[in-house]
Design a protein around this nucleic acid. Structure first.
Lengths: 262, 262
DNA sequence: AGATGTGAACATGTTCACAGCA
DNA sequence: TGCTGTGAACATGTTCACATCT
């Protein structure tokens, strides 16, 4: 293996860093807002401010996509919207199923941000027979018995799990067996999936715990710092050093079921 | 500003890396599960598997907290639970307010994972007068007119924003003015906050967009790869390279309001 | 023996600072 | 002149491999 290359053969295309990919949706949103206000061009400085990052980072990020800006001028808003959308795969239609239609599942189904991108809620699935047929966000809930058929009929490759923790792994297994290869998991469980399946996890309580850590820290520093030094500095989107990102890897098991009662 | 040092003086205490802090809740959950099953000790290997990370990373993480393990044996479950809880600040009580009681806010209020840690939902706040007094998860919703008083009376320092995008910044400003110094933001907006206030953001549609990127990638590689190379490898919690983490920094504005209709 | 704890190598991500083009 | 695009310096995070202790 010699000196060590990346583990990913990198399909010869470009190798866009994960950190950059994670920010593309931020840029896209800021750009969409500008587009709606019919702003023709933006500088990296302006766009970075709108997206809450610094301009050097933004320019570096864009440099991985190619040279879509004009020196001395900035970026063409419409063109960039298109390029980023294409890069993210949002120019195609992504049918998505949401499994577990409790409060969270309903919130997701109602979430406008999905439809406005390339995502289409193809089906809502719940294990509770009483839910079957009931419309949520205008879409009738279907029973989980039909999960496999629904996946196949709609050509779904992305599934969202919003079930209680205990149901998550079985649901995940069925989704994967039916052909789903990307999963967004809201249940507080580590999901086991075969190679080639992507799992991303959003864990509400983990975020709070990270905040608590920093909060505790602040309380301790108050005593030590005293004068507070730096003064105002204030408010331009990005808060402090600590406002970084979210969790990593997968999440563990062993907690109260939580959302989606009945 | 001279040659440029770190922006953070680093309070001399310990400097636990952000990446490690973000994983502590994962370990804590896995440990809590073991504790409930009365398992007395775990090896780094076992615990890592349960948390969905690799053992080297786990050991390195724990090394920042101190030497809490026993060579040749492993870690004492109860002791570790206590140490991590303390480190995260979960041994104290954190009163939390949730602003915006739509589907998402209700899901959060019902989320068991909060109460089981040091978090206590001190109040639910909504701008809709029709919601006032209505109990959600056993807690009566209060009108946002009383936001400042509620914050002060309960000594709240952590606020959760689950309002539509348009309401997020004003709500944020009022929370901060009333003394909140940590905010968990579910609205798709970049929040401006003064220095010293932490903001973490969870954005549902961003996660989906990142999945879409990788999904698109897979489709492209299928053609190129063919043989698939590596074979099974399969399924032990952590999926592939791409299952990494979530978004970073803050999120931008300019999207459909989303959750919390009325 | 069997596990932790950790220095050192490696990989990824961020920021600086400026060359180069419009 | 004013902006992008990027090499190089720096910072953070991950993995390896083994010394170290029970």
């Amino acid at each position: 293996m010699a000196t060590g290359r990346t583990h990913r053969p990198a399909t010869r295309s470009r190798g866009i860093p994960e950190a950059t990919v994670a920010r593309l949706p931020l840029y896209l949103r800021a750009l969409t807002a500008l587009s709606e206000r019919s702003v023709p061009t933006v500088s990296s400085e302006e766009l970075a401010a709108a997206a809450g990052v610094n301009s050097a980072k933004l320019r570096k990020d864009f440099s991985y996509l190619g040279s879509y800006g004009t020196r001395g001028v900035g970026y063409d808003v419409e063109y960039l919207v298109y390029q980023i959308s294409r890069e993210l795969g949002l120019t195609q239609d992504w049918p998505v199923v949401i499994v577990g239609i409790g409060n969270l599942g309903a919130a997701l189904a109602n979430y406008g941000g999905f439809a406005s991108r390339g995502f289409r809620v193809a089906a809502l699935i719940d294990a509770d027979p009483a839910m079957a047929g009931k419309p949520v966000a205008g879409i009738p809930v279907q029973h989980s018995d039909d999960l496999e058929k629904i996946i196949e009929d709609n050509g779904v490759s992305i599934g969202v799990i919003a079930t209680p923790a205990g149901a998550a792994q079985p649901v995940c297994d069925r989704l994967v067996a039916a052909g789903v290869t990307s999963i967004l998991n809201f249940a507080p469980t580590v999901l086991s999936v075969p190679d080639g399946v992507d799992v991303r996890k959003v864990d509400l309580s983990i975020e709070l715990q990270i905040l608590a850590f920093h909060e505790q820290r602040k309380a301790g520093e108050e005593a030590a710092a005293g004068s507070d030094g730096a003064g105002p500095a204030a408010a331009r989107g990005v808060s402090g050093p600590a406002s970084s990102s979210t969790s990593a890897d997968q999440g563990p098991d062993g907690d109260v079921p939580a959302v989606m009662p009945a």
